[in-house]
Design a binder for these strands. Sequence first.
RNA 1: GCAGACAUAGCCCAGUUGGUAGAGCGUCUGACUGUUAAUCAGAGGGUCACAGGUUCGAGUCCUGUUGUCUGCGCCA
Length: 432
Amino acid sequence: METITISQAPQHVGETVKIGVWLTDKRSSGKIAFLQLRDGSGFFQGIIRKNDVDEATFEAAKHDLHPETSFVVTGEIAEDKRSKFGYEIHINDLEIVGQSDEYPIGNKEHGIDFLLDHRHLWLRSRKPWALMRIRSQVKLSTMEFFDKHGFTQFDAPILTSSAPEGTTELFNVDYFDEDAYLSQSGQLYGEAGAMALGRIYTMGPTFRAEKSKTRRHMTEFWMIEPEMAWCHEEESEEIQEQYVAYLIQDLIDKCPTELEMVGRSVESLKPFTELPYPRITYKEAIEMLQKGGMDVKYGDDFGAPEETFLADQFNKPVFIKNYPRSIKAFYMPTDPEDAQQVICADLLAPEGYGEIIGGSERSYDYEYITSKLEENGLSKEDYGWYDDLRKYGSVPHSGFGMGLERFLSWVTLQDHIRENIPFPRMLNRLRP
RNA sequence: GCAGACAUAGCCCAGUUGGUAGAGCGUCUGACUGUUAAUCAGAGGGUCACAGGUUCGAGUCCUGUUGUCUGCGCCA
């Protein structure tokens, strides 16, 4: 007899098979019981009738199966329109493997704090299952997209000697009696990679010790940071929008069930696969905000309300280009049309989700970079290697960073990014 | 870092001028042959966050402590 998974059930209609499962819920009558089953590959229902099994098995189904009890079922796969999945299994026999008593998570009515305290178990529920499948697909699609476009995956170090942008707080670790820090960006290392391999991308965890308490922040999150040699900002933006559209199209094609499970309709995502995305300048954005009655002036960075307002003017992601130098990173080159500004763009997601990508051209001028490093108090000892990238065969290059969980929270319509990573790390949450 | 809320059963929450601690869900027992948050009947379940104070009497009023959530800032 063949052992299959729930996801393979449609190919085994009429066959008697074995499946290793967990119970999510059950309903029973005097002579029939409905067992809601999951096995990691999917969810469906098992039916057990008193007349089809011996009495001990039927009694076991009624009394010994509790939420998350693991067992092996033997039965015949049937197509049935009364089942939500479309298929179900008529059980002839079952063998309990692992008992489960008083499972803490029910079908409804839990607060977020309780659920996060039980994250190791909550992951078994439907919504986290769907969110983790979507996350996995996005990472796979990322690798496929960049591979197709000639990029090499390039892993930046996580332990670093100091801070790339010098401003944010870093997690300090003891590195054999020397101070080291957990990386807050792989970008500078990515630039070294681009000079070696042309086009690279990093994909890995990033750490920020900022005491942020918002729906858009975690202390540990994942970034995807492509870096491209011989590339100006305009070309980088084209890659960015193609990448975002590619991720969304792949989700539409490969994860429609998971999207529906988390409340995101496939139809609502389709417009975001149509390119190009609109582009406006920072100055135009300021004008739009002022006309909209918001209290901003040139030189201000945008907060959440401003980002939402701007994104609401378009029904697509929108690039905001060329911000003032004062609110951007030291390595961004001067905008030739306005010396107060730098060549960069942020991509704002629609529907109130704010910035999902920050990117820019990188200055490749040795004098400019060395003076900026000095202005920002970044030492030769720690950043001399970054100078070298300009000293030996410097070329125009650009790159960007996408926050994986921010992207995911947008496409899955979550109001907080914490459910888009298996074990979120936040200001007040380090366990489980 | 700033501001505002909250803390009562395993969970989600009520609790009136201060007067014996409540419901729903889950759990357990029973009924029911197509249930989808099943339904019906019954049972069990509490150091009211912690520490003081006022009072004949505090879940309720006062003070302090701790924890959590939400929004803002910072950013992805």
